[in-house]
Design a binder for these strands. Structure first.
Lengths: 212, 212
DNA sequence: CCGGATCTCAACCCCAGGGTTGACCCCGCC
DNA sequence: GGCGGGGTCAACCCTGGGGTTGAGATCCGG
């Protein structure tokens, strides 16, 4: 595989030069140009037709989101990886919607950046952990602690969680790779134990337990 | 940097063996064990404490989502990368919510898989392009689920709240002093508007809206 | 080794719940 | 006056969910 050709864009000279230097040390990465604002970035992409554009979000003239949009529109062969100081809610989504493949924060190390560039060139997408967490939203880490007192068996808790996700019995059966009869049995048991009448009450119960 | 220690889990022997062979050829990847079902995967993770678990979604005993949840709960030091044949809507989100770091389809090449494993071990997350696209689309409209923007009439919201309290249709009818037919009408309307299938999903919807 | 708990499954019954259609009233707005 | 939307109701159908019984498999602690 030949080296991934990259254009770097950042308005801060220190950051830009630092990035270029760092990336040049990485095997498989080839920095072909560096831009100091969005317009220049778009121009340089047109000129060099790189595999990836590594671009800062906050830039004068034309910001990262706008640059991303233009590049994706005019040069579908060039993937975009966004680099930013803050994993700020607003711009993140805008950039991703504009077609960015990857999203990194500036505390990423050289290897991480390199990996992201390689991945982008291959059509994969790498996200900063924090960004992915936000993207997935309901990252509410479950608390296996207090539901111990419910008297439910592990299997019953699993079933309850799936009920709370709005799945039907057949869907639950498929998910757990058991027969529907088994699912019904578990459900009847947990209804009896928790004094529930139907799955609607079960969903409410699950939410109160913090299962969803 | 030392090699990334990986446990592979897939119920299909061919796939599993193929993966192990492929991965062993990659520099920086160390396959320490291979499991043929979810339970075995969880057990092997406990035993070897690897950096990453590469797991298939569809497996007997305990599927990929379940395995992911358990591993993330019991072994926070082990990241999970999911591998699947089809980028099916449902399971993808479940897996990611369960704590998966990466998501690949089986048409990924060895290098892509290797990159994903490296990234996961470093706390980054790699997603299959298609999966990311879906994720972004989904996040694009995160909250049409606002009381005001839900398009529900006051009466429908009232009914929804009572459903979330676990009341049956006849109980709701008595409470609102209307006939059961009326209640069913309201329910059908709100199901259509909020794209719900049954009252169980309605309860979950109500909780997410903050109605209970 | 036996009893209890858990998980698994099958067959059956019954009805609440969900889908559909069509109807009437009342109110606000054009 | 006419039109639309919200609220009210009835009749129908039929699937899925909930209840029951009964039974085999496994595992574990006494």
């Amino acid at each position: 595989m030949s080296a991934v050709r990259v254009v770097v864009a950042d308005d801060q000279t220190v950051v830009r030069d630092g990035l270029v230097t760092l990336l040049k040390l990485l095997p498989g990465i080839d920095v072909v140009a560096a831009a100091s604002d969005g317009e220049e970035a778009v121009r340089l992409v047109a000129e060099h037709n790189p595999d990836v554009l590594l671009v800062d979000l906050r830039m004068p003239k034309c910001d990262g989101v706008e640059a991303t949009r233009r590049v994706r529109a005019d040069h579908p062969g060039t993937e975009v990886v966004v680099l930013t100081t803050y994993s700020d809610d607003e711009s993140v989504l805008s950039a991703l919607r504009a077609g960015a493949r990857g999203f990194l924060t500036k505390d990423a190390d050289a290897e991480s950046i390199g990996r992201a560039l390689q991945a982008a060139a291959a059509g994969q997408s790498i996200l900063d952990a924090e960004v992915q967490r936000r993207l997935i939203e309901g990252a509410a880490t479950p608390k296996p602690a207090d539901l111990a007192g419910s008297g439910l068996t592990p299997r019953e808790i699993e079933v309850l969680r799936l009920i709370a996700d709005g799945l039907s019995n057949t869907e639950i059966a498929r998910r757990l790779v058991v027969s529907e009869a088994t699912v019904k049995t578990h459900i009847n048991h947990l209804f009896a134990k928790a004094n529930l009448r139907d799955r609607a009450q079960a969903v409410a119960y699950a939410y109160r337990l913090g299962l969803a």
